[in-house]
Design a binder for these strands. Structure first.
Lengths: 197, 197
DNA sequence: ATAAATTGATATCGAGTCGATACTATCTTA
DNA sequence: TAAGATAGTATCGACTCGATATCAATTTAT
């Protein structure tokens, strides 16, 4: 029973409810719903190709209309900023305002998680991350929508020199910190290749 | 970065959105919201001490008033049954109706998960379950509400004979299959003891 | 023993989510 | 240059959710 995948799903379910409940508590203090915090947390991680309403909708698994309303509210509360894209004038770009960043910082949303994982060894975390990441990539592949992930595990990513990285997909240079951000066109390499099944 | 707990949190976040999105899809076909499916899934696992509206509210991290409404809807749709407790006449007991069980079976809700974890070795799953379970128990302890878990990891549980188990907390006999159900008064043993911190 | 407090559940209300649909604006393709 | 695709917004109805109030049953305190 310890090796039952459904046991794992049950744990994830309960963990999800606890984290969600914590978000509700934190959001309540600022008049925000859970989905608003999720949006802000996403925007804090998203790279410059993935900071749009559409990408957020795909990340959250909601329709763009629904997400549009949430973004409107965040904008009214000055927690995010929206600006036109230079290339494609249909596209709206999003970023956290300084108030938004401050609000996330103060919220202490990650504290519960941090303190509860403190005693896990680096090795154990590595195993968990690796296994869940494989599972995530498989699920994303089957679900058929966008695939989210960071450059580290992406097939489009390559190192050009000591400090210069490159994305073959967008054909653009990436800084090291950009390479750690979340991207909506992630394609997993090594451990799991969606093609060979 | 592979060993960063926040990386793990990010994966759980995205996994949660995907699973939630899948529930929305399945629920949409039957006119149910995500929370209704979550309630049914809980009731399919809960033991006989934990099948009440209050326990469900604690599991989901919602108020009892909110949960009461969801249960009303499930009852109207004949997906659950409600009956009075024999001992305490304030208490309402819940169980899935045969329609409810059938509906869960047909939904194929676990298929996505099953197929995506198929290639994880038993050993890998064991490690993941163990690490996340420790984390879950810590979070539950800090959150201060009810602690959910199965007898296997509970300090109140003991084996009386070959096939007979016993719960010291409720002072009642448990069958083997009952021992695998979810309980709202779980207290973790061995790996993590909340007292010694 | 009886009043007070607690507990489990339901009802009501308002703010807000969410999908469906329709719509506008912009870009791409034929 | 017209048709289609894409990004985003607006509107509407069903429903969630917390806050609050209420009720009944149980437990505790005096």
């Amino acid at each position: 029973m310890l090796k039952d995948p459904l046991t794992l799903l049950g744990i994830l379910d309960r963990l999800g409810n606890l984290l969600r409940s914590d978000m509700r508590r934190v959001g309540g203090e600022s008049g925000l719903q859970v989905v608003h915090l999720q949006a802000m947390i996403y925007l804090a991680q998203a790279n410059r190709f993935s900071n749009t309403p559409q990408a957020l909708a795909e990340y959250l698994g909601l329709t763009k209309g629904t997400v549009s309303q949430s973004l409107l509210l965040l904008d009214r509360n000055n927690l995010i900023e929206r600006y036109q894209d230079g290339e494609d004038r249909r596209v709206v770009r999003l970023r956290l305002s300084s108030e938004g960043e401050e609000m996330l910082r103060v919220s202490g949303l990650h504290e519960l998680w941090r303190s509860s994982t403190r005693d896990l060894s680096a090795n154990r975390i590595r195993t968990v991350v690796s296994a869940l990441r494989d599972t995530l990539f498989r699920i994303q592949d089957q679900a058929g929508g966008s695939n989210f992930g960071t450059c580290e595990t992406c097939i489009h990513w390559s190192r050009r020199s000591a400090r210069a990285y490159h994305c073959e997909w967008y054909g653009e240079r990436l800084s090291m910190s950009e390479s750690r951000e979340l991207c909506r066109t992630h394609l997993p390499r090594s451990t799991y290749l969606p093609e060979d099944r």
